[in-house]
Amino acid sequence: MDIFTQQIINGLVLGSIYALVALGYTMVYGILELINFAHGEVTMMGAMVALAVMGAILGVAPNMPGILVVVSGALLAIPACMLLGFAIERVAYRPLRHAPRLAPLITAIGVSIILQNVAMLVWGRQYIPFPEILPKSTFTVFGAHITGLQIFIIVLSALVMSGLWWLVQRTRLGRAMRACAQSREVASLMGVNVNKVISLTFVIGSALAAIAGLMVSAYYGLAHYYMGFMLGLKAFSAAVLGGIGNIAGAMLGGLLLGVIEALGAGYIGDITGGFLGSHYQDVFAFFVLIAVLVFRPSGLLGERVATRA
C-alpha cells in the first residue's frame, strides 16, 4: 500500500509540473488555435536564466539564505521569459495570423530550434547542476516519502492555477481573453484591443513557463538546453488530454498524465506478468490519450463542438 501511495505522490508531483507547462499551451491555443511549440523552450530559458542569476549571486554572496537566492533567480527569470514570450509572438506569430494554418507551426518549430541553440551557445552543452542551497526535508505520509520541495511544487502549482482561473473568469482582462477566444473579430468590434490581449496571453503563459522551468530544475537538480523539448511535448499531450483551450482541462490533463505515467511505469510489468515493462511507459500514456480522444474527440473537458476545425 505504501508503494501505491508513493506512486500516486510521484504522479501528482510530475503532473503538477506538466499542468503548469500545459497552461501555457492551452491559453495560447484557446485564443489563437496555434500550437506554440516553442513554449517548452521558454520553460527551458526560465530555468537557465534563473540558474545563471543564482550562480552569479552565489559567486558574490555565498552565504545568502538559499530561499532568497532562488527567489531572486525567479524574480529575474520571470520578466526575462515574459519579454521572450512577447518577442516570440511579435516576431514569429503575429505576421502569420492570416497565413495558412501550418505556417505558424513551422515558425514555432524554427523558434524552438533557435532558442535551444542560443541557450547552447550561451550556457554551454553541459548539464548545469542546480546549487544545493535549498533545505532538504522528508516527511512520511502513510509509509510514503514526500519531500518539502515536492509539497511546495504541488502547492505552488495549485496556487498559480487558481490565480489564473481567477484572472480569466473574474477580471476585465480575463473577459477580454475569453471574448477573443470566441471570436477575435467580434471582440475587436466590442472595443477589445485584440493584439494587446494576445500579447498579454503570451506574456502570462511565459511567466508560468518560467516558474515551471525553475521548479523542474530545482526538483531534478539540473538544467540543460535540451530539457524543454520532452517537457513541452508531454505538457502539450496533457493539454490535449484535458481538452486544449480549456484551463481546468489543462490542470486535469496534467495531473492525470502524471499519475498515469507513474502507475504505468510502476505496475505495467506486474500487470502483464513481465511481458511489458516500464519501457512502455510512454506507450501507456499515449495509449490512454488516444483512447480518451477516440471517445471524447475534444478531450476530457473540451467543448463538444462537432466541426471544430
Partner: peptide, 24 residues
Amino acid sequence: RLRGDYLAIVTLGFGEIIRIFMNN
C-alpha cells in the same frame, strides 16, 4: 473523428509508439 491538432497529437503518439516498440 479527430480534427486538426487533436489528430496531430494522436498521430505523434502513434509514431512514438511504433518507435518505442521497435526499441524494446
